[in-house]
């Protein structure tokens, strides 16, 4: 409780207790690089259609891999963690994510709806037939 480090704030990008090592810092970035590179390679492999996974599952798999890689970047490169000294940064990130989700999902939803309303009867029939 008398240790000020545990109640303080941390700038995004700052690592924990400094100095203790160049080696530790390089290791952190190295792990991030390896994980990110691995996820990227898997992403491109899945997209190339080598038949690694069930074909219709590819888009979902790609999105999951992308979210995982963004997480790796946030933790190992931007040093946004769940530590108590990172609360403000994480809250700002959560708010940003909320807005991004609202914009993207909201736009897709509204525009899909509009497209549906604007269909000519012929298009409508084709569309329904597609199901």
């Amino acid at each position: 409780m008398s240790d000020p480090h545990h109640q303080s704030d941390r700038a995004p990008g700052d690592e924990g207790e400094g100095q203790s090592g160049v080696a530790k810092g390089i290791l952190g970035y190295g792990i991030g690089l390896v994980l990110a590179a691995g996820l990227t390679i898997v992403s491109f492999g899945v997209a190339a259609g080598y038949g690694w996974i069930y074909q219709p599952g590819i888009p979902v798999m790609l999105l999951v891999l992308a979210v995982a890689q963004m997480g790796v970047h946030l933790v190992f490169f931007l040093h946004i963690t769940t530590g108590p000294d990172n609360t403000n940064n994480v809250l700002a990130l959560a708010f940003g994510t909320l807005i991004v989700a609202l914009i993207v999902i909201g736009s897709l939803w509204i525009m899909a709806n509009l497209n549906h309303m604007n269909m000519s009867p012929g298009e409508m029939a084709r569309h329904m037939g597609g199901f």
Partner: peptide, 14 residues
């Protein structure tokens, strides 16, 4: 400074 810049980056991402 870092926190302010983080807010800017998030607005850029938005």
């Amino acid at each position: 400074t870092g926190y302010g810049f983080w807010i800017f980056l998030l607005s850029d991402i938005v």
